[in-house]
Amino acid sequence: MRLPCGIINKSYSQDTAIVRTNLQWLLLVLALITLFTFPYWASPHWISVMIGVWISIIGVMGLTLLTGYAGQLSLGHMAFVAIGAYTVAILMSDLNWPFWAALPCAGMISGCIGVIFGLPSLRIKGFYLVIATLAAQFIIVHIISRWDSLTGGVFGLSVPKVTLGGFEFKSDFSYYFLAMIFALIAILIAKNLSRSRIGRSWIAIRDNDIAAEIMGVDPFKYKLLAFFFGCFFAGIAGGLWAPYLRYLTPEQFTLMGSVWYLGYMVIGGMGSIMGPIAGVIFITILDEFTAEMVTDLATGSPVFAGFVQASRYIVFGLAIILFLIFEPRGIAHRWERIKNSYRLWPFSY
């Protein structure tokens, strides 16, 4: 992080602090106030949209650790979200566990299964690893949809509500806070993981795993750790989805879902913590916009009726393609450049 003039590191803890300047403190406080008061002034529509955003941020954060930092491409992340969701659902409805005990379990189980599917990563790389994770997607969803006695099969199962003391997280209003707090914790954990020894080892492996091994980084251990954390986050995201949706069917966890997680990450910017946040928010807003557009086009002028059905595909496809062409390093990178050019203006060289 480049700092303005006059900021001097006097101690190690000062050097490693995330928030450094007064302006950053001010922005952080303002952002937190906005986020915490959001449900009080936003429309119900945007509250429910934001719940989705927070939960997706957790899942995509896991993918960022796995793919963006450790370089292990995964096309099966939705399957691990499914494991988390089903774990919470089964523990809460069949064994009557409280949500707060079921959620860490969901993360752990998801993480452990992630490690199993991460085992081939020691030997296979790149596109070949894509297939190993694609296999995870198909095998896990297949098992979920066939294990009727446990998961309810293709008809799915319903999930109890989250309670804390006597309070029920029943409305979107209360669930917003639940999702947001978990998402903020996840962001904090991810940020700190990424600058710890583990995170630096991941980056070394991503950039060149043979070089990393020569430097003394154990690739096997850190690759498996990446799979564990990546899938742990996915499991937590799934665990939060389940009580929000109240009903799970295997149809909800599709390959396209996994692809979208990758899309969030790439558009936001890989290898940064800001990336997934920006990506999820951008695509969700775009999604809402296209859905509105479908309504407007279909009710407004029937001339577009043929186009209406294709509109969401076209807008999405173009958004991804244009981003990759004009800003292949994602929104986060663009944001950094805007900040830099603002900071250095008018003498940018």
Partner: peptide, 11 residues
């Protein structure tokens, strides 16, 4: 990029 193409072409 190929995924973007996939979605665009479907559209």
């Amino acid at each position: 990029m190929t995924i973007g193409l996939m979605i665009l072409m479907r559209g």
